[in-house]
């Protein structure tokens, strides 16, 4: 009886313990981030790529660094099931994607249907201000 009781308690305590951070993790996160920041900087400053490729590259580097810091600085993905932290984070990312992407889509679409500034000024002048 006592034998059976003994072990689960210890395991239980250790699984409930807060995550221990390690120097190794921080060094990986820091080093990786520095490399990616400087790479992005050098490409933006001296890179001779056309714009869409450049944008995709910089966005990729930013997202990679984001993931790296989430894992090594903010210790995401180390919890036991149910992974609620991850759930909330993924939900946040979906909302951010919808909000930012949707806003840009909608506002660009509107812009495309507006009079350009120069035409507008011409029109306003011809209509006595309105």
């Amino acid at each position: 009886m006592s034998q059976i009781n003994h072990q689960p308690v210890d395991i239980l305590v250790s699984t409930h313990q807060p995550e221990q951070v390690t120097l190794r993790g921080y060094v990986i996160g820091f080093g990786g981030s520095i490399v990616m920041t400087i790479t992005a900087y050098l490409f933006a400053r001296y890179g001779m790529l056309n714009k869409p490729v450049m944008v995709a590259l910089l966005a990729f580097l930013a997202l990679a660094q984001f993931t790296l810091q989430l894992v090594y600085f903010l210790h995401l993905g180390r919890e036991f099931s149910p992974r609620l932290k991850l759930l909330v984070t993924v939900f946040m990312m979906i909302i951010v994607f919808i909000l930012v992407g949707g806003s840009i889509w909608i506002m660009n679409n509107l812009d495309g249907r507006m009079m350009g500034t120069k035409v507008m000024i011409k029109y306003m002048n011809s209509q006595d201000g309105l």
Binding site: W105, I106, N109, L110, G112, R113, M114
Partner: peptide, 8 residues
């Protein structure tokens, strides 16, 4: 009614 296109 704000004026977005038919796609949006």
């Amino acid at each position: 009614t704000m004026g977005a296109g038919s796609d949006v």
